[in-house]
């Protein structure tokens, strides 16, 4: 398929995804905003005023990056996982793309771009909401944007694997509940790993979300538990691995072809 046609196919997949995001905005954009308002109010304002400072900044400013990432990660993951699974399992319209000459990589790129768009959009909206509770300073705006993009990318790729592999709707809800949420909560949204016992500090280093939150927090505060380069490298490595897994699954037709 010539490059120009591949782009049209890519655009078609993305356009469809984005229209869906806005059509059902009360399911895709509103819930993370409501949850974030609660988090900012309870953890930031009510509890935060008692906690005082963490790593030299007011507690609410410390948790803002983590709470933004919590919404970004969940939104990007669920966008791709649920859209792909719905198309595969319920409406079966994934066949529309599979019978077409659209190359595997374009299919992957199309689906994850919708996830990235939703993830970044939710991230920006939650950040705007956070301004009503605290005005975070941005030390490195480009790092903020980079981590917003990379985390949306990584979890869109993860969502696609989930969508491809899932055999029932339970499989779609199990991952966010039992994998994503614990990873996010244990990834340092509410605390710095320096406040953990040494064993837990070491275990935290195996959590990819830890690098996402730290990298993103570095963009705001200019400080991080680990080097920004390590955070970026971990995310790039994860992107490569997840992209390879997705490509293999789709090429083999796993969960799609009989």
């Amino acid at each position: 398929m010539p490059l120009e046609k591949q782009f049209i196919s890519f655009y078609t997949i993305v356009r469809k995804g984005v229209i869906r995001i806005f059509r059902i905005w009360s399911q895709t954009l509103l819930p993370p905003l409501v949850t974030s308002v609660l988090y900012f109010a309870i953890f930031g304002t009510i509890l935060g005023s008692r906690i005082g400072e963490l790593d030299g900044v007011p507690y609410i400013l410390f948790v803002v990056p983590g709470l933004v990432m919590l919404s970004v990660i969940t939104s990007a993951f669920m966008e791709v996982a649920s859209t792909f699974f719905f198309a595969k399992f319920f409406s079966r319209n994934i066949d529309e793309v599979l019978v077409s000459p659209t190359p595997t990589l374009v299919i992957i790129a199309g689906f994850i771009t919708s996830g990235i768009i939703r993830g970044m959009l939710v991230g920006v909206l939650v950040l705007i909401v956070s301004f009503f509770f605290a005005l975070p300073s941005v030390a490195h705006p480009l790092i903020v944007l980079l981590f917003l993009f990379l985390s949306s990318l990584v979890f869109s790729l993860g969502g696609l694997i989930n969508g491809i592999y899932a055999k029932s709707f339970d499989s779609i809800t199990i991952v966010p509940t039992f994998v994503l949420t614990p990873l996010v909560y244990l990834g340092g949204v509410f605390y710095s790993i320096h406040s953990l016992p040494p064993l837990w500090q070491t275990l935290s280093l195996a959590n990819p979300v830890f690098y996402i939150i730290n990298g993103f927090r570095y963009g705001f505060l200019g400080t991080s538990d680990v080097s920004i380069f390590i955070c970026t490298a971990v995310l790039l490595l994860l992107t490569g691995i997840l992209l390879g897994v997705n490509w293999y699954f789709l090429k083999k037709g796993l969960g799609l072809k009989q």
Binding site: M1, K5, I8, S9, S91, N93, D95, V97, S100, P101
Partner: peptide
């Protein structure tokens, strides 16, 4: 291919279903 099962996105309009399909073929 016109398959045995009805398998278009039920939330989309017919015109969009057909135009999107064209898109997957690079039209």
């Amino acid at each position: 291919l016109c398959g045995q099962e009805i398998n278009f996105d039920p939330w989309m309009k017919p015109l969009d279903v057909v135009v999107n399909q064209a898109g997957y073929y690079g039209i």
